[in-house]
């Protein structure tokens, strides 16, 4: 599903070179639920951006759903994001001027579905997250947990191959966070691959597999099977799915 090999990401200014990811390798199999953890500044978000094709990387290769996406152009990357990846953001990223229906509709419009098809998908996705009665509500009229559910519905409506969640419960209280996490677990149980970036160890503990990132390196994994683990060179720490 997701294979990163020796990915490096370097941010350069005139005087400073910052290595956000160093020789980062990771493999996620279809149907997995992987939590990527690490402290602030460890490279989690850079990993998420690269995995979600939101930004380029400096070197290495990246295969997504058996397709090498390392050198794709901007339009092709947009198409893959639209068709294969569902995003869930920490601060929900709903469009404040659009109601629930129109928010969930956003990625579907870029997909080119007919109006009827979009409506069907929106209604199904919103029903899945339990917000059918709030279809015409604006984000400001919803609680944080409900907004994140709308964001999940938006991510699911296009039937993506995998979900990328960036601190999905970071802005929620524990009760709401628990509800969102349960929803993600249900979605994963239904077969959708999920990669979740979080700094919350408890939340990560609920994922069947954990990957820890520190200073741009993959440092550890709780459920690595086929690869040697510990303090070897990063290239050797490529994680093979459980």
């Amino acid at each position: 599903m997701l294979e990163m090999h020796h990915i490096s990401k370097v941010y350069r200014t005139d005087t400073v070179e910052t290595h956000a990811l160093r020789d980062f390798s990771l493999r996620v199999e279809e149907g997995e639920f992987v939590a990527v953890t690490g402290p602030s500044g460890s490279g989690k978000t850079t990993f998420l951006n690269i995995a979600g094709m939101l930004e380029d990387f400096t070197s290495g290769t990246y295969r997504l759903d058996a397709e090498d996406v390392s050198d794709l152009g901007d339009d092709a990357r947009s198409r893959i994001r639209n068709e294969k990846i569902g995003f869930i953001f920490q601060s929900f990223n709903l469009i404040p001027d659009l109601n629930v229906f129109d928010n969930v509709d956003v990625p579907l419009r870029y997909r080119g579905f007919t109006g009827a098809e979009r409506r069907r998908r929106i209604e199904e996705a919103v029903e899945l997250v339990g917000l059918t009665s709030r279809m015409r509500h604006l984000p400001s009229q919803l609680s944080g947990g409900q907004q994140q559910r709308v964001a999940i519905a938006r991510a699911l409506a296009g039937a993506p191959r995998f979900l990328l969640a960036d601190e999905p419960t970071g802005n929620l209280d524990s009760e709401m966070a628990d509800g969102v996490m349960a929803l993600l677990e249900d979605i994963n149980s239904a077969g959708t691959t999920i990669v979740m970036v979080t700094h919350d160890a408890d939340l990560a503990g609920r994922a069947p597999r954990n990957v820890q990132v520190l200073d741009g390196w993959v440092q550890d994994t709780t459920q690595a099977i086929d690869s040697p683990v510990a303090s070897q060179a990063p290239a050797e720490l490529a994680v093979v799915g459980s």
Binding site: G52, L54, D74, D75, S78, R79, R81, N82, E83, F87, F89, N93, I95, V106, P107, Y110, R111, R154, A155, G158
Partner: peptide, 10 residues
């Protein structure tokens, strides 16, 4: 940025 992330082209 969000629109771009969920699939909008330039």
């Amino acid at each position: 940025g969000t629109r771009r992330a969920v699939g909008a082209r330039r």
